[in-house]
């Protein structure tokens, strides 16, 4: 999984990958895995356009010097804006924006369900539709960021459903677009982005077991390079194996 693009340690100089400078689009760029991905890509010299919910003035202090657009992907206007502001030729599009609540169905609200399904599933479908031309022009890779919860999760049924939907969509789309645009679904395990706490997860043990965000971001970038499989999982095992052997999971 992590074979083609070695993870960068912060004390080592960052280098351009063998493929050279790439044009990337990243959604969910203002926080969490998306922010870490943008930081690593920008430091490596890639051309990155980020999209996020936060206004430009509310971006965190370490936000990289990249093109950034505010969009709310739960709305159709947000999806239209994404397609309109995207570069005309893309090497990589990483649809990473996600939203979720750690709670059973009896504590869900209709609005929250609609928002989670809109951001996690409908928006990536609309974005994939809007970005097809740019990805085709760049013979690019479309990455859909799911979650290991996609097989079902009793504690977060709506989130699990949205990520399973993304996985199923990606599987069929990969077949449709074969030979034109490479589609991959990347499933990170629970990551220490703060999303889990905001989502209502309170177990201290579970919070300690989260994957480090920088390692996951590097894993996501690696999963977008080279010849990749449809489905790639990022777990402690995969990160550890890569650290020890320098090779893929």
């Amino acid at each position: 999984m992590l074979d083609t693009h070695p993870m960068q340690d912060h004390d080592q100089p960052l280098q351009l990958p063998p493929q050279g400078r790439q044009t990337w689009l990243v959604t969910g760029a203002s926080a969490g895995i998306g922010l870490a991905v943008c930081q690593i890509l920008h430091a490596a010299g890639h051309d990155v356009t980020g999209f996020g919910r936060r206004q430009a003035q509310d971006l965190p202090a370490g936000f990289p010097d990249i093109a950034y657009h505010t969009v709310d992907l739960a709305t159709s206007q947000g999806c239209d804006l994404l397609a309109a502001r995207a570069p005309h030729r893309l090497d990589r599009a990483l649809l990473n924006a996600g939203l979720g609540y750690y709670r059973p169905l009896c504590r869900e609200t209709p609005q929250a369900i609609s928002d989670v399904l809109a951001v996690n599933l409908l928006a990536p479908m609309m974005a994939a539709h809007g970005l097809f031309g740019a990805l085709l022009a760049g013979q690019g890779v479309l990455g859909l960021v799911g979650s290991t919860a996609y097989r079902g999760a009793a504690g977060m049924p709506v989130y699990a459903a949205s990520k399973a939907g993304l996985d199923g969509f990606g599987r069929s789309l990969r077949s449709e677009w074969q030979g034109r645009v490479d589609v991959r679904v990347i499933h990170p395990g629970p990551t220490a982005t703060g999303m889990a706490m905001r989502a209502g997860l309170t177990s201290p043990l579970a919070l300690r077991m989260m994957l480090p965000v920088d390692a996951v971001a590097a894993g996501v970038i690696a999963a977008m390079q080279g010849q990749g499989r449809l489905r790639q999982r990022i777990s402690f095992g995969a990160i550890l194996r890569h650290k020890i052997t320098g090779r893929a999971a």
Binding site: L117, L121, P157, A161, S162, A164, D167, F169, G170
Partner: peptide
């Protein structure tokens, strides 16, 4: 296909 997979996981 995506919508139906979502139902299975749900």
């Amino acid at each position: 296909a995506g919508g139906k997979d979502a139902l299975v996981a749900f």
